[in-house]
Nucleic acid binder design. Structure first.
Lengths: 208, 208, 208, 208
DNA sequence: GATGAATGAGCGTTCATTCAT
DNA sequence: AATGAATGAACGCTCATTCAT
């Protein structure tokens, strides 16, 4: 019966949602299963019907939240690309990042959760469910390969960009130091453009 | 009597040292007071004579470890500057950062501890005890003011540099992904130079 | 309709069988209702349609398992007695016991379960279903009354024999200490003969 | 300071005593640490200062209780032997067993605890602290070697005797079935004598 | 000042039992 | 009749904190 399955999904979602709030605010280590079930208004035992422990909840959340993040970013990009061809691949990447940054700005919990739990090792292999099971790296790759420019060490380049965005936005959005997000953006995006240039392979001019 | 004070300092130092090792390896949340006093070979009650709780220990450690880090970096720079004038302020800054990065590479515990606990808010106001009570920002400031170039929004610039270094080194040194430190350095330092250029204020050429 | 009753019997049998395996291997206290229904491939709630709790299952199992044990022993004896008259009642009793011991040796689970759960109080009143509702004591009694010898305190005598067999076989069969079953048997059966002699009432020779 | 050590010993003793009562009456599996500390009127955490878990308590109790049992039996024997030389080694062994049986009769908890927890494997290797660290088997051995008779397979013989005593006394003392202890003793001891005879090696009469 | 035995709240986890479906 | 999701009490165990010595 669909009714029961619906209720189960609701319960699981309630647990994930409660855990997400708590993980983002207090961190995983300072969040107890008791607090999670209290937040979800369920009995303690119910938690263990759905998850092995809180770390399984975290893993589930990482996947789903990153999914949401990139899904929304991807949808946004598709919408924009319908309207107007971007001037360059760099512009596209900046636009993609800007969409992500705006999402993080709208949801500090998402930012806190992602920053605290998403290491590069996990991030780079993350599967985005609704995008043909491609991982995050593939999305960047696809964007880059549309360019007529060549890039060396693409993974290192993306790594540097992602870490720079993540680290600076964390402080700026959550603590408002040393500047506000609006003030950061121009210089952040400029730096990203510089990093892209830096990894660009200049081919020798063909000899005539 | 100094002897008693000496003993007290020794005990406090023993607690700090034991806590530092444990915090770096297991994280604060997974370190118990019992483990700290065991490591310091002191009684459990003694801990509470010196610290309110383990979070006070963490705060104390952040200050002292960052102190050590910058003190060493500063000493190293002074030593080098005696030998040879650097070609430019950019070179000096890169050199300073390189010294810090090498220290972090030599002591993963230090890196783990600093990275996880040192927010920009704390960092930017950090007092370096043995350096005329100047804070870390002042050191950069001093270096920059020696240049004949002008920089806008110095704090934002330093913030971006520090966060980029911190975030990339954390992954590269501790997890060896996506590359090894030697491979990261050239591109990391190149990016830093780019950030410096980006914040450089080009003065209008004087009209003759 | 018989079909429904059949299904019910099947389910009850499945629960008993699953419980028996688990009780014998892990002991009652370390066996959960969850494990039993899992073994029986039934839903958790179904258990409570057939039994109040696992202790009722145990009681039910004791009866049925002891039943099986003695039924098989009895069948075996009947079969043998058809062939050849035993030399003496002692021989018959030893033969009966040997049959039981061999069954226990073939099924350590049965031994473990019986030994841990079958007290003398329960055993001595145990009804054997297919044997005219006679209890175990009656079987011994019948055997003994076929003899031309007289025995005093028959119940005490049987008690001592049963306890000696049970206790020694438990250790020897399950733990193989201090000897193996083959090495135990001659001395065990010899001791039983001695116990039988010991309880034999020597009647005064009739005066002529 | 002795005072603190005294208090510690008192606490450990209180825990052992409370556990002993509970283990004997309810069995180990149905006894919780909570109940033990409640019985000892201590806090839950205190339990874990003295024992790893309840199984360590059990092991400690087995050793100490068996020690007490045999120490008392041994003392009693020494006392009696001062008065009068026993007529034979068989008499000595029967006397030793009788002393043990009387102790078990006086303390049903001891009997219940010993019977439920002391397997032959454990028993046969049990070290008696105050008896030159000899184990239980050694005591029997020593008694037997004082005889001018020879016995084969001494371990098997003692095993059969111990198991017979243990099994019969458990039912008779605790459940008063099928007879009372006074009624059991003559036949039990007679059986033991028979077992001893049975294992006695009759040496061939020297040929003249 | 220093100790470490003692505490008890709170953790993660299990499980007998209930009950809506 | 049969199910299995849900419950919450109770488990074993840890640990920050206190306090008599």
């Amino acid at each position: 019966m669909g009714k029961i399955d619906d209720k189960k999904k609701q319960k699981k979602a309630a647990l994930l949602s409660a855990a997400y709030q708590l993980f983002a605010v207090k961190g995983i280590d300072n969040t107890s299963v008791s607090e999670i079930v209290q937040g979800a208004k369920l009995a303690k035992g119910t938690f263990y019907l759905y998850f092995k422990d809180k770390y399984e909840v975290r893993d589930s959340l990482i996947a789903s939240q990153a999914n949401l993040l990139f899904e929304r970013a991807s949808r946004q990009m598709d919408y924009v690309l319908q309207e107007k061809e971007p001037d360059s691949v760099e512009d596209s990447i900046i636009y993609l990042i800007d969409t992500v940054v705006d999402q993080l700005n709208d949801s500090p919990n998402l930012l806190r959760f992602i920053s605290k739990n998403l290491s590069w090792g996990v991030f780079s292999k993350l599967q985005i469910a609704d995008l043909d099971n491609r991982n995050c790296m593939d999305i960047f790759d696809a964007l880059l390969s549309e360019s007529n420019k060549k890039y060396r060490q693409k993974e290192l380049m993306i790594f540097m960009i992602v870490e720079l965005v993540n680290a600076t936005c964390y402080n700026v959005i959550l603590n408002h130091v040393p500047v506000e997000l609006d003030e950061l953006k121009p210089d952040l995006y400029n730096s990203i453009r510089n990093i892209l240039h830096q990894f660009e392979v200049k081919e020798a001019a063909p000899v005539i």
